[in-house]
Amino acid sequence: MSEEIVSRLQERFTEITPRESLDWPAVNCPARQWADLAAALREEYGYRFLMDVSGVDWKEEAPRFMVVYHLFSTRKHAYLRVAVACPEDKEPEVPSVVKVWPTADWHERETYDMFGIRFRGHPELKRILMWEDYPFHPLRKEFPLAGWETELPDREVAEQTGAKVIGAPMMGGPFVAPDEGPMSEREPRARDETWTEKNPKPKK
């Protein structure tokens, strides 16, 4: 059944390709065809639920940014995954599907907030989780978990308390074991070891 929907979609939308997946049927869709495909999926194929919108940053791979949509059909009780790659790496952009599924509104704002991916045609694309003036996109791969220094969202409070948004101290914090290297060096360690509590982080 999983292959069926993919091949049926391929007949109609020539530019989409099957996508490797461990569970649900999945397709890759180029950004220029996504708006048409989305409308058809909702109206004709019964995918009335947009469950999730998720950005992925593939780092060195091209294209770097991708938006992954998970659709759910209440009739067939099955999911469909659609991956839409952003054609541009510098200013990633895909068409918005707010008009098709209203729930995409917040999901797209979240993806914009976390990855800086813009959604063409979104009614009010602004940050949702971080504050409006926050300068970074935290889920991009080059952004460290500890964060970079910046200003508090409220200038008055920042002036009065002298507090800033600072990089979180990582010593003893989240740590992982690297996948490669000799066994003796694979013990868990802080992911970012360039600075510790004793050697403060260099100013950016």
Binding site: A146, T161, I166, G167, A168, P169
Partner: peptide, 18 residues
């Protein structure tokens, strides 16, 4: 102290502001 959330979004202890 910020506890288990050592991340970009969490203030590392409320004693930084009050």
């Amino acid at each position: 102290t910020g506890g288990m959330y050592r991340s970009y979004a969490v203030m590392q202890g409320v004693d930084r502001i009050v």
